[in-house]
Simulated assay, not measured.
Amino acid sequence: MLSLVMPTLNEEEGIEECIGRMKNALEELQITGEIVVSDSSTDRTPEIAESMGAIVVEPDKPGYGYAYQYAFDHARGDAIAIGDADTTYDFEELPKLYELVANGDADMAMGSRLNGEIKDGAMPPLHQYVGNPLLTKFLNVFYGAGVSDAHSGMRVLSKEAWEQMECDSPGMEFASEMIMEAGARDLTIEERPITYHEREGEATLESFQDGWRHVRFMLVNAPGYLFSIPGILMSIVGAFVMLAAYTDVSIGATGFGPHSMVLGSFLVLVGYQVTSLGVFATVVGDPIKKPNDPFTNWLVQNVTLERGVTAGAILFGIGAAYAGVMVSQWALSGFTELPFLLGDIAALTGMILGLQMVFSAFFLSTANRC
């Protein structure tokens, strides 16, 4: 059985045509099917759907993503097809997606609008040439999705694939979450070109707000890209700048001085803090895409409270000892000769970094216990 699922919010202008095309698709496929409408309308949408033989369910909570999840719980098919009820998707194109899943060639099949045809006026140029390509690029880079149109709403997936996913986003980011979960779990995604049509009824999307929700969701669930990689790069650059300034290395006619030392210290401290956030997000947040860089993985697997506190205390002690030597030299001069400024910065950086390590170790220990 194939379950065809549509979320609806006041779609009385397009629901009849969509259900009719769904029935045509089932007739072409010659399989048993059911049409499930997950409805939150205040117009005649549910009455029209029921009159055409659809099963209408009413989600007990709001949200585009929740409407799908609620309907999936009521779906009885071995495979699930989804799409919007605004006539933008031609459900008579579903068979070519269904066959990919039924034949075992894909766990989830998607219709690609960007590789297919977009009718005049069907998609705003900002979405077609900027928004959708950029969001697709994010998903491909962060999650290895390998798709051309990540936010196409026409999809077919096996019930088994859905049960492997742990999607729980109630809003529009549910569309991204499905692909993120599939990519993170090495499920096979295949695409076929489709035609995207003008919609019937009033649009409910808010371009910038909904786009930002997708980007935010992708970033917070990929702490390796959001925290670990930037943090490690900042720490490496900062350590190099500090070392070059301290040892008075020159590149051509350009040397590194106190200002470079301050910049290097800033990068080291911020880089360590950002990298720590990547570790914390991995341990506490259980993100969809965990960091895969060796450094973060090593920290997650090997850093214990005792090791972290010990390392931090040693680093703090070295910095404090160096600072103490410089203070004693200053005192011996009768407080007339200021200590070596670069040494001050190095000592202070070591002390701050040591304290950060100590408290980070305690926080990580608390998070692990929770």
Rank of each mutant, 00 (worst) to 15 (best):
L243C: 14
S228G: 03
E58N: 11
T336A: 01
Q209V: 14
H214V: 09
M180V: 03
D149K: 12
D39W: 09
A49W: 11
E11L: 07
N10D: 13
N132K: 13
K61V: 08
D248E: 12
A75C: 03
N115A: 14
E12P: 00
Q273W: 15
F316D: 06
V141Q: 08
S365H: 10
F266L: 05
H151P: 08
L305T: 02
M180R: 09
S328V: 09
F174G: 03
I236E: 00
S158P: 03
E190G: 02
L157G: 02
D86K: 06
A109C: 09
I179H: 11
G350N: 00
F217H: 15
L97R: 02
V220F: 10
V141N: 06
P291R: 00
M178Q: 15
A361L: 05
E206S: 15
T204L: 12
S158V: 01
M326K: 11
P62R: 07
V309D: 04
D120M: 05
W330L: 15
L134V: 11
E50L: 09
Y196C: 02
L243Q: 04
L205C: 02
V237L: 11
G324E: 09
M154K: 05
D210I: 11
D90T: 00
A109S: 08
D86I: 02
E28G: 11
A331R: 14
E50Y: 03
M178Y: 14
A361N: 00
D120C: 03
I251T: 02
V37H: 01
G144F: 03
I55Q: 14
A109F: 09
W298G: 01
L243R: 07
G153K: 06
D120Q: 08
D86G: 02
R44S: 08
